[in-house]
Design a protein around this nucleic acid. Structure first.
Lengths: 147, 147
DNA sequence: CTAATTAAAGATAAATTTATCTTTAATTAG
DNA sequence: CTAATTAAAGATAAATTTATCTTTAATTAG
């Protein structure tokens, strides 16, 4: 569904939403360990995710790290996809046609239409905060670590 | 959503379903032109798609080419995904966790669950034949050609 | 001001996917 | 049997994604 970069970004965002605050920032080491992702690659992804301080914010230097503001916590999950440049997954034709549209539908268009709408609704309605609240303490987001 | 290989495979399958029969096979040149895909890469994909003669069948030599049997036309669209080894898209966790399950759900599991079920239902219910019937004559599957 | 700490930026490499080209095998028409 | 035609198979390359490592810039504590 999503690229690995976006998967890491989603997991990191949920973890930061749950564990961080402006007073308690998280370092890249803690984040990568928590979400079971490669350290340096995750650092790159955090650059993208925090650029503009829209979804995740970052501060350099001692006591620096990544965190989310109360306001950012209220953002829809879709804002993570937007930030990662992967929101087109929610718009693309399932057959990969760029001419596919309501007026010129591909043979799967009508069938796939509702599913796409449901996905858009999910990612636009659900907030990051809500996902963080669903997260069982120190359990789920650690991914493949205890495989 | 799907890889380019799978997108080409889906488009080729729909085209073959509409235009071919055991008496009227389609060559790789005709297929690649029709679905606006790179010739040699499409040839590779057709190898995967026709191996085992499950979904698409192939015959070499003069008057050879690709075609579908009446029986294969009745297969669900999912069989194309299976043949391309991309059916896991329908099963995978949206956060990329391989431990994610009903009993150990990730924070998006409950929310994404129904969408995944809808997708599985769509790809298992809709047949290739039905898609081919929806196809407007020589129009839609040609993809980016007339961009 | 200096040293320490942290993320940002940049250079590079490994892995995977997409794409191309050449050779081989199967099949048919004559 | 021979030549022609077609897909299969294999070798290789280009592009993209994933990953790693090094250097730089910002910030803080002392």
């Amino acid at each position: 569904m999503f690229s690995k970069s976006t998967e890491y970004a989603l997991r990191a965002t949920i973890y930061i939403a749950q564990k961080s605050s402006e007073q308690n920032k998280l370092g890249i080491n803690a984040i990568a360990a928590a979400i079971d992702s490669p350290l340096s690659f995750t650092a790159k992804i955090m650059q993208l995710l925090s650029r503009g301080n829209r979804v995740v914010s970052s501060v350099r230097g001692p006591n620096g790290g990544f965190f989310m503001t109360e306001k950012a916590m209220k953002l829809p999950v879709r804002s993570v996809l937007d930030q990662m440049g992967e929101d087109e997954v929610l718009e693309k034709c399932i057959l990969g046609l760029n001419k596919c549209s309501e007026s010129k539908p591909c043979p799967m268009h009508a069938e796939y239409r509702q599913i796409k709408l449901d996905m858009i609704r999910l990612f636009e309605t659900k907030t990051i905060e809500q996902l963080a609240a669903d997260l069982k303490e120190g359990e789920v987001y650690i991914g493949n670590k205890n495989k």
